[in-house]
Amino acid sequence: MREDRSADDERMSRDLLTATDPLPDIGALVGRAVDGGRRRLRRRRLTVAAGGTSLTVVAALLVLSPPDLGDMASTDDVRLTAPSELGVRSVVEARQQAALLTEPFNEALETALPGWPAAEGDYSRSADGPYTGWVFTSTNTEAPVTELTVRVEGPAAGTAATRFCVPAESTPSMPCTQRTLPDGTELHSGLTQLSITDEHGDVVTSTPPFARANLPDGRTVLATVSIGEPGAVSADSVALPAGSPLTTAALEELVTAPQLAQMPLP
């Protein structure tokens, strides 16, 4: 630390302290950061593994995968219509909008997954900063802890090109389906084989369901499931219990819910 501070230095320090008042709610900020960090940790631990071989293909769950683009609509079907946009300009505004949109999301959630815990909404941003959509997270704290994450995002997020299914020919035990609905929605769903690394470096496998709808207006609605508490991962803790309502069909219903199709984007 400096020892030779002049009066001018002291004055500049005071000026900057004054200029940077008031501080935000530090407790809330740290709470959000911990929640966000836990979500990042879950995603980081979810790695796609090619089953049945010694070769493990590790890929981040949300990495763009050009080959999967072939699963999407043909060039003729490319929709250029821009989704409706709210024109969100600030973090505060984004959070307010996310909170407002949580209500219609929870209506859709209750329809698709009756009795499932209500979700909390937040905004999503690209690495470059623009707001790209909304993220709704619902956590069932009963063992095994299960987190359902639904992202409603515009084309800029790149979610439509995210790869989830390991090709069926290499992993026939992991069915993934793709079909086009009458309204033009491309619906992808199935199970994702995930290798989750615990803090000791041990790997356990999980096969949670997912569903993704690439809507005609260019938005993507993606539902993913994470099973197991970070830091407490075991083979038993990353499997859905028998009779879990988190089925592929339920997620398909959720991602195609009209509330999400009509949800304005940031």
Binding site: V34, G36, R40
Partner: peptide, 10 residues
């Protein structure tokens, strides 16, 4: 700050 803290948590 939130973004940095999230990354640091991980």
């Amino acid at each position: 700050v939130q973004d940095v803290l999230e990354k640091m948590y991980v």
